[in-house]
């Protein structure tokens, strides 16, 4: 994973609640076996509507998505996080996220920013009133700034550390080999094993 660095970019307002991962990346694109290249299919069905917010030129190249509660609910497909990342997004700001989507995003360096609903509302309004306005996301300081608005967000220390350092979690866990092996010694004998 790349280190997460402070950045500024256009913020696009997707003013909807409960956006599920089927909308973010529809199933027909899940047959690919590659990890990259999902960006062009982001919000595939909604993009067919010329009025869809991400089709507006002012939001072209946006890097921050501001949206409603429960973003990324539904299917566990990490393809949803990949497609956002591949399309250039570095952060998604919402009052709440689907649990699995949030985990998936953190693993690939896409920052889920939780803010209270009123603050997300203010950001959405600003991004709609001033299309093309830029947001600055600073993970070190845990702060989002957009125009006159500036909010501090919470994130657990572990996730923040992993993102800032760009840590390879698997390498970290593999260092715990002795503890994993010790646990394996204690596992009950009746647990199933399936030889190939």
């Amino acid at each position: 994973m790349k280190k997460f660095e402070t950045f500024s970019g256009v913020a696009a307002p997707l003013d909807k609640a409960d956006v599920d991962t089927d909308q973010i990346i529809p199933k027909q694109f899940l047959r690919r076996i590659e990890r990259s290249g999902f960006g062009p299919f982001l919000f595939f069905d909604w993009r067919k509507d010329p009025g869809f917010v991400l089709n507006q030129p002012a939001y072209a190249g946006s890097r921050v998505l501001i949206t409603g509660p429960n973003f990324g609910c539904g299917s566990s497909r990490e393809h949803a996080a990949w497609s956002l990342e591949d399309a250039g997004y570095r952060a998604v700001i919402a009052p709440s996220f689907g649990d699995i989507f949030r985990n998936n995003s953190l693993k690939i360096g896409l920052l889920p920013v939780h803010l209270p609903a009123e603050q997300v509302r203010a950001l959405l309004d600003l991004a709609q009133e001033q299309p093309g306005v830029e947001a600055t996301v600073d993970l070190e300081a845990q702060r989002v700034t957009m125009g006159d608005l500036s909010y501090r967000f919470q994130i657990d220390a572990h996730s923040r550390h992993c993102l800032l350092e760009g840590l390879d979690e698997i390498a970290q866990t593999l260092r715990l080999e002795p503890e994993i092996a010790a646990y394996e010694e204690r596992r009950p004998a009746w647990l199933p094993t399936i030889p190939a």
């Binding site: 699995i100 998936n104 690939i108 979690e169 698997i170 866990t173 715990l176 994993i180």
Partner: peptide, 20 residues
Amino acid sequence: FGIGSSEVEHVLATQTLLQQ
């Protein structure tokens, strides 16, 4: 519970998972 593909990889490699 369900996990994403990065976590699938973590489980394949370590048989463990990091969870809050």
